[in-house]
Design a protein around this nucleic acid. Sequence first.
DNA 1: CCTCTATGTAACTATTGGGTTAGTTGAACT
DNA 2: AGTTCAACTAACCCAATAGTTACATAGAGG
Lengths: 213, 213
Amino acid sequence: MVAAKTRKPRIRDAEATQKRILAAAKQEFAKKGLGGARVDDIAARAKANKRMIYHYFDSKESLFQRVLEDAYVDIRTAEQKLELDHLDPKDALEKLVRFTWKYYLDNPEFLTMVNSENLHKARHLKKSKVVQDISRRLVTMVDTLLERGAKQGLFRDGIDPVQLNITIAAIGYYYFTNRFTGAIIYERDLMSREALDTRLQFNIDTIMRLVCK
Amino acid sequence: MVAAKTRKPRIRDAEATQKRILAAAKQEFAKKGLGGARVDDIAARAKANKRMIYHYFDSKESLFQRVLEDAYVDIRTAEQKLELDHLDPKDALEKLVRFTWKYYLDNPEFLTMVNSENLHKARHLKKSKVVQDISRRLVTMVDTLLERGAKQGLFRDGIDPVQLNITIAAIGYYYFTNRFTGAIIYERDLMSREALDTRLQFNIDTIMRLVCK
DNA sequence: CCTCTATGTAACTATTGGGTTAGTTGAACT
DNA sequence: AGTTCAACTAACCCAATAGTTACATAGAGG
């Protein structure tokens, strides 16, 4: 038990194996969704044995649930670190829009997992108390920001923080999750540096016009 | 060959069988995506034999492609019937937002199919010339509307019709496709009559503020 | 240095599921 | 009424896949 981290790497390392499995599962689920992911492939990717997956995570489904939970905890934790309270309301709002955009861009597996979960009617997420708790903090954060901006006469009164949150998420989420069909329908490369910059600016503009007086 | 439609229903009817298969496939793909859908279940739902599916549609993949193509043709055709040119630009824009919302609400299988297609990097849609052609007409329609509104001094100048299209789609699409996880994250019934009305009004407001001077 | 258990491997099972084969039959046209 | 062919059925094949069993061993604690 003494200072496991300073020891030279053990050949047998339960913690490390679990982490490798979780990382591999995230990639695999992101690429193929819950239904398309293969337990054998996760094992291979994790350089672990399939037996270990069942040993540590019981079933494919509960492994998915765990990966999904971790994904939600990650994004909600990152959001909480934004510290919007210290900023001018307009700057804070823009920062939130930028953050959401960047998070989706950098973590496409989050989008795929959410899509997959919705295909399954959120039956895994339903079981997760922790996700419900941290999500409440997001709404509170935006609500606080809206009230502060309204009090300063910068924002319109009476905007529903949930509707705003949905909209901020939507204008980024749709763009990224449908980037493949979008490229065909709109006959553009949506992922070029220039296209990304343009879209982010458009999104900031959309939200500012929606919220500001 | 004479007046097939007036004849009494044949026991053997190639056309009717194909239609039943397509309808069944649409439902099945909508419920489970490409990977999750089962050919046996499609056959059962269509009250047809599995052999018939392969006879008419070659493979599960090309059946999916056909259903997806039909779905795109359907929505694009419906859009073209809106006849926005006859309306005041603001009314036309609102009509488009309402249409998009209602279409997603009434045709949830379209959303699932698009999600599934993006999971597969749009490899089926890439092959479809017809979808690319009709999609171009959508962009043209919105572009015409934007120019007309700008000329009348109602809309801002220089709005990119593609960005606007994406935004109109996004604020509806995200709401519906993530309605299950959304209900948990935001702790609300997103599909009640009242919630739907509120959201649609919010969306119209969002787009009007974005486009109008 | 011995023992016991958590960590690990590999081979196996049972089932599912896309696709096929072999054969049957309704009805359109002579 | 007979011929033909497309429409149709049922039973089959076999590769893939979630989950299991049997067995091996590193290494922590006595």
